[in-house]
Amino acid sequence: MTWISDLLGPFKGFAVTMRQVGKPRVTRKYPQEKRVKPPRFHGRHVLNRYEDGMEKCIGCELCAGVCPANCIYVRGADNPPDNPVSPGERYGFVYEINMLRCIYCAMCVEACPTEAITMTHLFEMSVTSKEDAIYTKDELLVDPDGTPNHPQAESPLIDVKELRLGDGWMRATSSAGRAEYEGVVAWTPQARNPDLPVEAGQSAESTGGDDG
């Protein structure tokens, strides 16, 4: 009787379809209609600045060191003394993330001692070449007024406002995950307390540091 079951085959299949027709839909009309993301959604990174416009990144490479996908490349350099880029002696002069390699685990956010790198809600980053997937410091760093940058223009797919979302992070990444450390930078940018005078002793001038 195989010919009978062969004949019934298509109807069995359509029965599955027909059972679903009356049920509510789970798919969305993306991109016209977008899902609300959870507050700790892991999207594209931004590099933040302090309120005075100084970069938070100090080029310590802890994010690169902890990254399981090895997608971050950071190099530090001496801050120019007369026009410092970040508080302290060192700043990140190269900062690149390969978004194709990134697995959006947010270990970099967790490792960052200055909350310089955080994640936002933007995830639409389609590119047409592999090189474009490497986000450099120009693209990652927010403007001095805090406006985030994105290499692609605002469009129905790309809502640049999503780059400002992501504060749900701060609790999870604060020291030891404790609420009282939320928003407290776990690093003193300078050992120096500006209210205290520098201790007596030699200075750079008097040690000379020339040949011998």
């Binding site: 002696e89 050992a191 120096r192 307390n193 209210d195 205290l196 005078p197 520098v198 201790e199 002793g201 030699q202 200075s203 750079a204 040690t207 540091g209 020339d210 040949d211 011998g212």
Partner: peptide
């Protein structure tokens, strides 16, 4: 309390830098 505070880093020679507070 506040930590010690020094001018830093000072070059003690052409190849070595000194950060006394460390």
């Amino acid at each position: 309390e506040a930590k010690r505070n020094f001018e830093k880093p000072i070059p003690v020679s052409d190849v070595v830098l000194l950060d006394r507070e460390r």
